[in-house]
Amino acid sequence: MNKVVANADEALHDIPDGAVLMLGGFGLSGIPENSIAALVRKGVKQLTCISNNAGVDDFGLGLLLQTRQIKKMLSSYVGENAEFERQLLSGELEVDLIPQGTLATRIQMAGMGIPAFFTPAGYGTEIAEGKEVREFNGKQYLMELALHADFAIIKAWKGDTMGNLVFRKATRNFSTSMAKAGNITIVEVEHLVQPGELDPDQVHVPGIYVHRIFQGKDYEKRIERKTVKM
């Protein structure tokens, strides 16, 4: 039951070229900084990355774009990254843009063992092209498929050695669903604690979903848009 590994390099040791990864976070908030750095060091290529955003040029997933390690991105919004745009326009990078709620639910359903679901989002729009439409109670819905990954890589605030996780403020975003959708789920935490130190009533992700956990270090926690009270 002890899922602790020494560091990001050990946690990611078996990720092969061509792997499908999920990476948690929203914008630059709550991203697995240590693991992204370790992926750059490892140099794995041809990755498919499922993540709400693609980072900025020099932080977050932008680092893996700089090194051309990503073959395909599945995201909801990618507006903040010039290198991303350049690779997209030049055809170096495949991109699948998915509405945010549909992306979140596709990941969630993978963790719930449900292969497909019907959503009203996107009916009558470009998103609907090629998708099965069904009517329920007089309203039209699109069929969307669950989204799985070989490895889900997320960051939590606290975690115990058995993989139970607690998040802080608005950082749950995609991470709690991704934790449940990976064949192997890797978690870095700001605070690694012993079993019993987390209140069982307050656990956001039960340890059953987590395979490897490690104490992260040197968090930069960069802010994308610093806004303050006038």
Binding site: F26, G101, T105, Q108, A121, S177
Partner: peptide, 27 residues
Amino acid sequence: PDLINAGKETVTVLPGGCFFDSAESFG
């Protein structure tokens, strides 16, 4: 840095506020 809005701006949370994940949010 752990408290941003959907526009990725730093914000605050008011008394009575709460946090949840993206799947629940769009639900």
